[in-house]
Structures are given as structure tokens and as C-alpha cells.
Simulated scan of single mutants.
Amino acid sequence: MKLYNLCILVTSAVAHSWVEKAILSAQELTGLVGFPRGNVPRESSLFSDDAMTNLLLPSVRKHNVLEESDLICKDTQSTYNYTNGSPALQNGHVTKLHSTPNKASSGLISVYGTANPQPSDTLRGVQEHGQLLSRAPFDDGTCYQINNTPESVRRRGLPQRRHWAFEGADLWCTIAVHLPSDLRKGSTYTLYWVWDWPSSEGGHHMRTEIYTTCLDILVE
């Protein structure tokens, strides 16, 4: 059974996020990197937060109800459509979260997997029938962005894993995902990353706020 790390970089606004990269890891860092479907690199002139963010429920929806028809993948990630320079992974700003308005915690990450993805896959369907591979808080307790908050300073003093070059001085948040041991060589395995991060709307009333990213693993 292989161990994969999905490395998540939180934007400075700490208002939304997505999977930036997937890193192949075993007993040590291998350096193999993969990207989400339809990735728009930050250095691209076409990049924007909206280009990569998939929010459920949509802000325009007045009723706080997740509908059965809500698709789990953003329209630009509903099919296997990798962009130049951002391939699938081949098998071979949490320090400011406490000051984010209306948020009680960093939220919960769930990663589901399937060997038979469909463009019509819904969030409800995957949650109810998908193969849950991993579940953990978004904040892994050690990740940080370089800033002057006391939490960033504190975490920089903690024992750390070796940084990947693309992280720079930051330490990205990660979630470990154990893939099924029976994956066929030459197959493609799809991962659905789901971040459940509800917002308080006063009192005990919470508004559903879920972010998703869809990406694939090429099994060799």
C-alpha cells in the first residue's frame, strides 16, 4: 500500500482553498508532483482564485440546503483534462484561521477515491457511497505561512519535515492518503478532496460551506 500526501496551500485571505499539488511519499519524499484537473498555475495570466475554487453551497443560493444534484467537481474538473505543465500524479494560511470571521475551526478534510469516476458524480453520492480514504482537520498542527502572527512564529520553532522547494519558506498543510492495495497497473484512480468549513450566521445557525478539488493518480 502506497502513501500519498496531498499538500494544500492556503491563500493569504484564508477565505477558500483548493489542492495545489499532490506529492508522492513513502518512507521519504520522492519529489514526484501532480496537479488537480484543469489546473491554472499561479504564475499564469489566467490565474484567479475563482479559476480554482469550487464552493458548495454557491453564495447565490439563499436556502442553506445541499441539493442531491450538486456535482462534486467544478465544471473545469469534471473530466480528465490536464493542462500543459500541470500533469496528473504518476505512481512511480492556517496561522490566521483563528482571526477568520465566523469560523469556529479549520474545518474537516475528507478524501474519497474511485476507480470509476463520472462527470455526473455528485457530492451527496460520493459522501454516501464513495470510498473514504482519509479524514482529518484541515490544519495539521504544523503548517504555516510566513507572517508576524504569534502562531506562525511558534510553529516555525517546532520540529519540521523537510521542505519541498516549491514551498519556499512556508510549510504547506498536508493530509496523508493511503491508496487501496489492489489498484491495477496502468489504471487511473480518482481522488475527491472535500473541505467542510461551515460559517456561523449568528447563534447556533451554521451555513454550509464546502470546497472541493478533483485530481487523479496514474498507477504504474
Rank of each mutant, 00 (worst) to 15 (best):
G141L: 04
C143Y: 01
C143K: 01
Y144G: 04
Y144R: 04
Q145M: 11
N147E: 10
T149I: 04
P150H: 01
R155F: 12
R155G: 09
G157Q: 14
P159S: 11
Q160C: 10
R161C: 06
R162Q: 14
R162A: 15
W164I: 15
W164S: 15
A169V: 08
A169R: 12
D170W: 11
D170C: 08
L171Y: 10
W172E: 12
W172P: 06
T174H: 12
T174V: 15
T174P: 05
I175Y: 05
A176W: 02
H178W: 09
H178R: 14
H178V: 11
L179P: 13
L179Q: 11
P180Y: 04
S181A: 15
S181E: 09
L183W: 00
R184P: 07
K185T: 09
S187N: 04
Y189S: 05
Y189M: 04
W193G: 05
W193N: 02
V194Y: 09
D196L: 03
P198Y: 07
S200G: 09
E201K: 14
G202A: 06
G203K: 03
H205V: 15
M206A: 03
R207M: 00
R207Y: 01
R207E: 06
T208I: 11
T208R: 10
E209Q: 13
L215R: 01
D216Q: 06
